[in-house]
């Protein structure tokens, strides 16, 4: 599994430590489904799993949003237009876009968790007639930490998408809700009997979100999360990403809460 050299077409600085790369896809006809990730390689430095944040309907672009948290992601976010990074993938499972058709869809994210859900949102908006009420609940640390802020503004201006945003710490410019993202659930309009929820954020946030959605009447077979684990290979060989019986790289990252038995939520599993 060799990384394929892919040229950087543009780099957008989203936040202080978060950048979006627009890459030439590894090959003609390269495609992905919302929820998948690639292994991105910085020459000689190393490789990390990064979820795809672009539009699944546009096969000419491979868009990835990266937060610089270590040597490899530092190197990947320091690239310039015209540089080359290595790509393997796409890997992993998809958000249940088909299951959600004809139903209400709740998308709940925290922090950079919005990145792996953006393809799902773009897909939903592209095929808006297939879905009932669509609600995006997004929590960030502060107003300055809102990822894709411009796009969030656009989305919030649409009549066919409900966007609710909360921050942990407000500043004087903030006029919206303050608090954890679960506090927004009461404001969303969805039918808990049939709705589908897609959740991505820090594990603790997902744990409480699932609890709250279940309390609201949703069942675990319609709750989906995207899990994060250490990954070295992306193909279920290196063992690092194990979560109970799952290899998160190939059985996930998107997992149904029905499959994620209690064992998967046990501390330190």
């Amino acid at each position: 599994m060799h990384p394929v050299p892919c040229r950087v077409r543009s780099v957008v600085r989203e936040l202080d430590d978060t950048f979006t790369l627009d890459l030439e896809p590894p090959s003609d006809g390269w495609s992905f489904v919302p929820g998948q990730f690639t292994m991105l390689y910085a020459f000689g430095v190393g490789e990390v799993p990064i979820s795809i944040s672009g539009d699944p309907g546009d096969p000419t672009r491979l868009v990835q949003t990266i937060r610089a948290v270590g040597p490899v992601s530092d190197a990947l976010t320091s690239v310039a237009v015209g540089d080359v990074v290595g790509v393997r993938g796409p890997f992993g499972t998809a958000w249940p876009m088909e299951l959600a058709e004809g139903r209400d869809l709740i998308i709940m994210t925290g922090g950079i968790g919005l990145a792996p859900l953006r393809p799902a949102i773009l897909h939903t908006l592209e095929h808006r007639d297939r879905y009932n009420n669509v609600t995006l609940l997004y929590g960030a640390r502060s107003p300055g930490d809102l990822l894709f802020a411009e796009q969030l503004q656009q989305w919030r201006g649409r009549f066919d998408l409900e966007v609710l945003i909360t921050v942990d710490h407000a500043d004087r410019t903030w006029r919206g809700p303050v608090g954890v993202v679960t506090s927004l659930i009461g404001r969303a309009s969805f039918d808990p009997e049939t709705a589908v929820a897609m959740v991505c954020g820090p594990e603790i946030m997902m744990r409480f979100t699932i609890q709250e959605l279940e309390r609201a009447g949703m069942t675990e077979d319609r709750l989906f999360v995207s899990m994060e684990r250490n990954m070295k290979c992306g193909i279920g060989l290196c063992g690092h990403c194990q979560l109970g019986k799952f290899f998160v790289c190939k059985d996930g990252p998107v997992l149904s809460c029905a499959a994620m038995t209690g064992a998967c939520w046990t501390r330190e599993v």
Partner: peptide, 26 residues
């Protein structure tokens, strides 16, 4: 036990790199 990790190594002058697989442990 099959768990492994990879090490990416680079020549000092940056002209070449290699990926090496070693055993890892949970």
């Amino acid at each position: 036990c099959f768990c492994s990790t990879v090490e990416d190594r680079q020549a000092l002058d940056g002209s070449s790199a290699e990926r090496v697989r070693t055993w890892d442990s949970c």
